[in-house]
Design a protein around this nucleic acid. Structure first.
Lengths: 245, 245
DNA sequence: AAAAACCCTGACCAAATGGTCAAAAAGGGG
DNA sequence: CCCCTTTTTGACCATTTGGTCAGGGTTTTT
């Protein structure tokens, strides 16, 4: 497959170890410093996020992304080479924000605070970028072919590191015994379910769409669930709407 | 693509992966009362479940299903008309088994027992038919275009009915206050995550694949999580390995 | 045995889709 | 204005894919 004259910087030509964020473009100070490029790439990625989230990789057509971005199809190929390249670039972008919430689990923190912050962060992400979550979920469901390396290295290491923190908290008697790994799986599951399966939740709740209050309710519920699971005292929610025991 | 074998069209080839023991061999009246049809439809649906789960609706080709079922493509069209028809038939089949687990929530039961049975059922389903779960998850993520009506009617009614049971249990002081709807969402999330996101869980646990023990661990964890959330006493797991608080 | 109903399938489309390319436009430094 | 790089895009393929169909086979009924 001969590459065209267009140079695709972000395409995934390499086997499967591109987890880096957008390749840094500063190498070429030519022209306007690649401003046009960055601007257009961002525009395309934004459109791609929405389309990929709704249709999945195979269901997404370059044409659809092009229309969503208001650009001719050939333009996408100019910037990202192939559909796969665009998808990889998008995944990198999504993955970046995914593990950051882990930072809340630090040994010096109080478990209850860490969990509260984590849940709040996750749910905010769910509210602000539900599409990103869906793109990721879709990738995993279909075998994580593009991110398996990432899962087995960076994510696993990160989880193990934070699981150790949880284990220490348990040993120190700061919280009830819980399997740290499965606790994380549960945390991911209950938070992401409101992004990935939003239509199901909305349907059951008889709402046309999940609103902010719904997600706040969800966040409160999740936090309660986590705190009880970890044997931690329940802090009253900030809004104070809830009636306490 | 999935199948590399070259043994595509042998008219007399018998499948060896069929594990459908027909109830009675002696008392069957006629050799055929639409039996061929049922047999073939089942065979196709089984193949379709695997392929759709792995590739999603758009990523699945009739050709791939045909190869997985060891039948010519035209045969699938003969039985199901269109790809959409096949998909819908599959979806119905999957949905059928999906709400049945709800039956455990009956007013006369003890909450702890009901939850235990529910979790066990769900996890057994996850173990035995992970593909079915993925097909469903995929459908929901992509907007539930084929099942939205089902979600808004049957599922919603069912959930409301069972939520009322939970609410009664809470009122009766049999369990701690929890939002019943969100409790269900959490239950679905934490159980299905082991089917839908199995590769992620396996990757983090450094296993090539989730085994039975992993799912048993998960089930124990989930049950503990649920019981604590509902303020119910923890029964010791069957294996007795765990030491309780 | 003949008719009827059901089953099977290779061969064949029309449409959609990822990708290519050449030529033209825009941009900018000298 | 000229030269070089970057960007833009319409037109154009090769391949894939869902779907059709006519004709042949097999089983059941009359």
């Amino acid at each position: 497959m001969p590459r065209g004259g267009a140079t695709a910087r972000n395409s995934g030509e390499e086997p499967q170890d591109q987890i880096r964020p957008l390749a840094d473009v500063s190498a070429l100070p030519r022209s306007n410093g690649g401003r046009t490029r960055r601007l257009n790439e961002d525009r395309i990625l934004r459109a791609a996020e929405a389309v990929f989230a709704e249709a999945g990789f195979n269901g997404t057509t370059m044409q659809a992304i092009a229309e969503a971005a208001n650009l001719p199809k050939a333009n996408l190929h100019y910037y990202f080479g192939t559909k796969e390249g665009l998808y990889r670039a998008l995944l990198n972008r999504v993955l970046d924000g995914w593990v950051d919430a882990f930072d809340h689990f630090r040994p010096d923190r109080e478990p209850a605070d860490a969990f509260a912050d984590y849940v709040r962060d996750k749910m905010r992400f769910t509210r602000q970028r539900p599409m990103a979550s869906k793109v990721f979920a879709n990738e995993i469901i279909h075998g994580a072919q593009h991110v398996s390396h990432y899962l087995k290295t960076k994510l696993r290491d990160r989880v193990n590191e934070k699981a150790a923190v949880i284990a220490d908290w348990i040993r120190a008697g700061k919280m009830a015994p819980v399997d740290p790994h499965h606790l994380f799986f549960s945390l991911w599951a209950v938070t992401q379910t409101y992004a990935d399966f939003d239509v199901q939740v909305a349907a059951v709740l008889a709402k046309p769409k999940l609103g902010r209050e719904d997600l706040d309710d969800a966040a409160n519920h999740i936090l309660r669930l986590v705190l009880r699971t970890c044997g931690l005292p329940e802090a009253r929610p900030k809004t104070g709407i809830e009636h306490h025991t």
